[in-house]
């Protein structure tokens, strides 16, 4: 499903009654089934953009559309995954993953069945009755991933979902994300500060400028799929990484 951003801008109220521009105005489209990575310096409005697309934040100006629908509230086709797992500490892994089904009114036995079928793919076999505090960071994030999968969204918004994890776990999870996506293709918008991760995963990378964030580079990543970890040593990969890095570094002063 296609996402369209038209003259989208967000400002936050600042002390003294003024408005502090945080993002935009920006205009671009995200194609159906596209894997888009958003990169940029911290504070460039990446997370703000994700919140607008998730329908959690109203833009100050312009608008965003999902297909033909104006995004003015959370839409069922769009799911968001947060920087940390954001699990409910009082729920077991099973009930945390099943939350979207529970909200949708699916019967308990049915939703537990669905989650149990999903657990092996998430590498969470045998942990269904554990509480979040008993999980490692990677396991918790995989449970959160399972929760998003059960929403069966057409569009995934991922706000630095692996940012809090160590490098190895992050790479492992990134590739798992690709593997999962190959089975049923969706539009993905991933915010990351890791350039290699962006190049390895994305079809296209958009580089945002410092506050207020504006599009300063729009780079197509035409590496073949399926992607794999060893690709990061290929010359084409290195060239693309360099190109992204240079456009970010051009922002320095």
């Amino acid at each position: 499903m296609r996402l369209r951003l038209q003259q989208l801008a967000v400002s936050y109220p600042a002390p003294g009654g003024t408005l502090l521009p945080a993002l935009g105005p920006i205009t671009f489209d995200i194609a159906d089934d596209e894997f888009l990575c958003l990169v940029g310096p911290s504070g460039c409005g990446k997370s703000t953009l994700i919140r607008v697309l998730a329908g959690l934040l109203q833009p100050t100006a312009g608008s965003a559309y999902c297909g033909d629908a104006l995004i003015d509230r959370p839409l069922p086709d769009i799911a968001i995954m947060f920087q940390d797992a954001n699990l409910m500490p009082w729920r077991t892994v099973l009930d945390n993953i099943a939350l979207p089904l529970e909200i949708a009114g699916v019967a308990e036995s049915e939703r537990h069945q669905t989650v149990r079928e999903l657990l092996p793919q998430l590498n969470l076999d045998g942990f269904e009755l554990a509480y979040p505090a008993e999980l490692s960071g990677g396991m918790a994030q995989r449970a959160a991933l399972g929760r998003v999968i059960l929403q069966q969204p057409r569009i995934w918004l991922l706000d630095e979902p692996f940012g809090a994890l160590d490098a190895l776990t992050r790479e492992k999870l990134s590739l798992e994300l690709l593997r999962l996506r190959q089975r049923s293709r969706q539009t993905i918008v991933l915010v990351t500060h890791d350039i290699s991760e962006a190049v390895l995963l994305a079809d296209r990378i958009i580089v945002l400028s410092r506050r207020p964030g504006a599009v300063i580079a729009d780079i197509a990543i035409d590496l073949p799929r399926p992607r794999f970890a060893a690709m990061i040593y290929q010359p084409e990969f290195l060239r693309l990484t360099k190109q992204v890095r240079e456009s970010i570094e051009s922002l320095r002063d």
């Binding site: 919140r51 998730a54 329908g55 959690l56 959370p74 968001i80 954001n86």
Partner: peptide, 11 residues
Amino acid sequence: RLRDLMRSLNA
């Protein structure tokens, strides 16, 4: 952030 999650699930 859990509130955001619940809202995004249209609870």
